[in-house]
Amino acid sequence: MAYAVFQIVSDNWLLLLVGQYPNGPLGGIAATLLLSLLGIGLAFPFSVLVALARLSSWRVLRWPATGLVYTMRGIPLLMIIFWVYFLVPLAIGQTVPGFVTMLCTLVIYEAVFLSEVVRAGIKALPKGQMDAARALGHSHLGAMRFVILPQALYNMLPSIVSQFVSTIQETTLGYVINVPELTFAANQINNQLLTRPFEVFFILAVIYFSVCWSLTQLANRLERRIAAKRAGGLAAMPKQMTARQAPAAIEPPAREASP
């Protein structure tokens, strides 16, 4: 079996890496990573907006944002993909390549899930930070921009990397709408070979595992570094705060069932 694995990889590594490029659209691992990076990158500014809307005191912002988050959390990603697959060509007026459809879906989906991470980061900061910023005369948005968000986003870096790992795993669903990413490539190989399905999917699993696991290790290392930095701040904090307020700043975002 090991020999079969080696053979399959050496025969098909190019397909797995870049799909049928340059004779076709970009595919394979390259497409997967590109899709994930673009997906989470483009989603990021929207996720901050959604998080701010959910924390807003204005109902006209808070309710739609909360509704959006609950909706996205209640529907399978596959269903959302089909919706986007159906609606985007309708909206634009022409057919759209699967890659773009998948990208749109990921941007919307990640905007919502990343917003939960951002929201947790904002809520984990001590209330005194916002108080101090407002007392100095900053507007709510000014306080967010200069004081709250810089801290929240830095603290949330490990969770953001974890969310990136999730995004990579979500790209696999592109297979269902024929997006030429890595899973699709593996299935192409399997359909050609037919005799070694286990080896093919084993390779597929190994590739995803390597990528995701390394990124998770990176996230863990980031978390240790950030926690160490925060602990340095703890030494100089007033003694009452050390017992009372600090835990809220150090704990990872609470796992909420109903945010």
């Binding site: 790992v165 990579i168 795993q169 979500e170 696999t172 669903l173 297979y175 899973t183 593996a186 299935n187 399997n190 399905p197 286990f198 080896e199 093919v200 999917f201 084993f202 597929l204 699993a205 995803y208 595992f209 995701c212 696991w213 998770t216």
Partner: peptide
């Protein structure tokens, strides 16, 4: 946690079943 769910499904249904 590091292998996508869809890939796990495929590994079971296409891969392991063939064994």
């Amino acid at each position: 946690r590091n292998v996508p769910t869809l890939v796990q499904l495929m590994l079971w249904y296409f891969g392991i079943s063939s064994l």
